[in-house]
Amino acid sequence: MPGDAHPLSKKSSEPPYGEPDVQIAGRVEHKDLVRLAWARAKTQFGSEYAGSALGGVWHLLQPLAMIGIYTLVFGVVIRVRSDIEGVAYGLYLCSALVPWLAFQESITKGSTSFTRNQHFLRKLNVNELVFPLESGLQAFVGLMLGYVVVSAFGLVTGVPVQGSWFALIPIFLLLIGCGSGIGLACGSVVPFFPDFTNVVQIILRPMFWLTPVIYPLSQVGDGPLRWVVLAQPMTPFVLATRQAFFEGTFPEIQLWLAMGAWTFGTIAFGLLILRVLRHELRDVL
């Protein structure tokens, strides 16, 4: 009970000393962070497939296999149709599934970025943010590579090259920023509660099915479910991606505002969580 004098109450557990006066020279500063994270992401990308016969091709084969299965199940067996005229369902699915997989990767890798790099965090005075940033950059590179495949698929099936495709770059940057913000928040909590990684995996399942990735938004109807679908963080990114890729128009301002709000909101939330937990983070790693 809040009012009870608990034997392990905060007052009895904290030493009666003032704030520590700590000044340590040479911490890697924010201006170096992106460069450092990018260099590490490149190294990690190479090392991930070091020694494997097909190397980086696996990065394309894995999503392609998943796309193949989803296309077979939803396009052929269940016969879901795209709501854009003349666009094959397989391509319609790929256009959102590839960004979703990158979004999911940025969250899952971000949520384990501190625990995976605990050998560094326990020994080096390096800024913690470099590791979630590295995970985000890896997911971004994977997404761009994946979209090269999607674009090739599009060209083969009759989707013309359009100027609006350039909008995909800022959309994907915001998307990975949003995933990384969630990943940072989760990653700050995971060292304290390792079970939280399982919670993240469980939460991602309904998020996937409630985001219009494998079905068009038009099939949801106008009931309360539509609002649930629209409230998903990935929904504006999926809508904006399909608009830019298939319809040849730059996404509407409402979509940009929604994407920006999700991205900056989740990053701010992640930074806040890290700030609150930072003083004890390396003690529990």
Binding site: P15, Y17, G18, E19, P20, D21, V22, Q23, I24, A25, G26, R27, L121, R122, K123, L124, N125, H279, E280, R282, D283
Partner: peptide, 22 residues
């Protein structure tokens, strides 16, 4: 680990004026 800037002390003064390599 405190001198390396990895862990935070609970109290007291820690000034490390040159970059530590741990």
């Amino acid at each position: 680990s405190i001198l390396a800037g990895v862990r935070q002390p609970t109290s007291g003064k820690v000034h490390v004026r040159k970059r530590p390599f741990a």
